Amino acid sequence: MGKKKPRTLISKKTVTEGGGEKNEEKQLEVKQLIPEKQTDVKQLIPEKQLDVAHPTDDPGEDGKKVDSDVPQETVSSTESRKRNIGATRGVCAMHKLHLKLTFLDRIATRTIFFLTSVGTLKPIAIELSLPANGPDSESKCVITPPVDATSNWMWQLAKPHVCSNDSGVHQLANYWLRTHACMEPFILSAHRQLSAMHPIYKLLEPRMRYTLVINAIARQTLISVDGVIESCLTPGCYCMEISASAYKNWRFDLEGLPADLIRRGMAEPDPTKPHGLKLLIEDYPYAADGLLIWDAIESWVSTYMKRYYTESSIICNDKELQAWYTESINVGHAHLRHESWWPKLATPEDLTSVLTPLIWLA
């Protein structure tokens, strides 16, 4: 911006000389309201996007800075000037951080949702975090829903970072790890230990038909070093490290939908409700629709088991079945084989509780 000319006020004064009147105009120069040197705020943001007044570098009569667009006489109190100055400094600090956030690849996010009275979730705060460079570095910033034009684009900038990180968690922990990697040992063991005519193999074969092929292709092109996953997802070279870290908390007995909802705090047991669960968030299509599918799978598997396994002794004496389950745990998940949460395989109910999550996930 070019240098602006000083504003002037015209003061008219009437004097009397020799019985006549003469208007004498006197120009009173007013101090320049906009400093010549541009501040960091103007370098970061177009002037029209600032919703706060720009304070000047020149003090008024009381030693306080005055608003650039309002004459000093109309400023009602010192507090209003302090609010303007504080708001400007706050906007400056946040915009500095957001310029960094715009051009960096990996930003940690935390989001707070509010459960409304109608059972829906409303985001009320997003925290964006960068690695701290020092004790005084501006590494974190909390963004709240917009109230004006400036905060609106800041809110719009924060939301894609949340979606990007959520996509990484979904792909690496919920999808690749739970539905592909953790199911692979059960599928491999089924091909090794169950004959093609075994009723359990017949039940599982349509569900596990393509998983091994997909996993093989994924290791070649998707999750390989510098592959599609590392190139496209936010975690980059840390993608497989995130999957490995999530696997430390993996439990087969909590992979079923009802147990998973309870573990994540989205539902609580309630025998009086459908599916034996009470959803804590009513507007939750994944849970509402998923429980219908889960019940259908569980009912189908239970009916199928009763046709071939009428007694517990049949299950205990089925060598192929026991070999399949033992190898899946002791070989496929070797370092978790001693965990007490593995379901037993001694009754038709036990077999149903093992097969239903496998079909749900695979």
Rank of each mutant, 00 (worst) to 15 (best):
S195R: 14
T179W: 06
P199S: 11
R178H: 08
F186P: 06
M183D: 06
I200W: 00
P185F: 07
P185M: 11
S189E: 12
I187R: 01
I187L: 04
L188H: 06
E205P: 02
A173I: 14
K202W: 03
R178L: 08
L177K: 00
E184P: 02
A196D: 09
C182A: 12
A190Y: 07
L194H: 14
L188N: 08
I200H: 03
L204D: 05
H180V: 10
Q193E: 15
K202E: 13
S189K: 09
L188C: 07
E184K: 15
L194V: 11
H191P: 00
T179M: 09
K202A: 11
Q193T: 01
T179D: 09
M197N: 15
A190I: 01
Q193V: 00
P206D: 10
I187K: 00
L203S: 04
E205I: 02
Y175C: 15
M197Q: 15
H180L: 13
L194D: 13
M183N: 08
S189V: 04
R178F: 08
N174M: 05
E184G: 04
E184M: 12
L172W: 02
P199N: 13
Y175H: 15
L203T: 00
L203D: 08
N174A: 14
L194E: 11
L172N: 00
R178G: 04
I200T: 15
H191G: 01
W176A: 09
K202N: 03
F186G: 03
L188W: 03
H180E: 03
K202M: 10
R192P: 01
H191Y: 14
S195Y: 10
A190H: 01
W176I: 05
L203W: 01
P206M: 06
N174D: 15
A196M: 06
P199V: 00
P185S: 05
S189D: 08
A173G: 00
Y175W: 13
Y175D: 15
L177F: 09
A190Q: 09
W176D: 01
P199D: 12
R192S: 10
L203V: 04
H198P: 06
F186Q: 05
I187S: 04
M183I: 09
L204W: 04
L204S: 03
P206N: 10
H191F: 01
I200S: 00
H180S: 07
P206I: 11
T179N: 12
S195V: 03
N174V: 02
M197V: 11
A196L: 06
L203G: 12
H180M: 13
Q193M: 13
L177I: 01
P185T: 06
A190R: 10
L172C: 07
R178P: 02
I187M: 09
H191N: 07
R178Q: 07
R192V: 02
S189W: 08
H198A: 11
P185Q: 11
H191T: 01
E205L: 09
P206C: 11
L203R: 02
K202G: 03
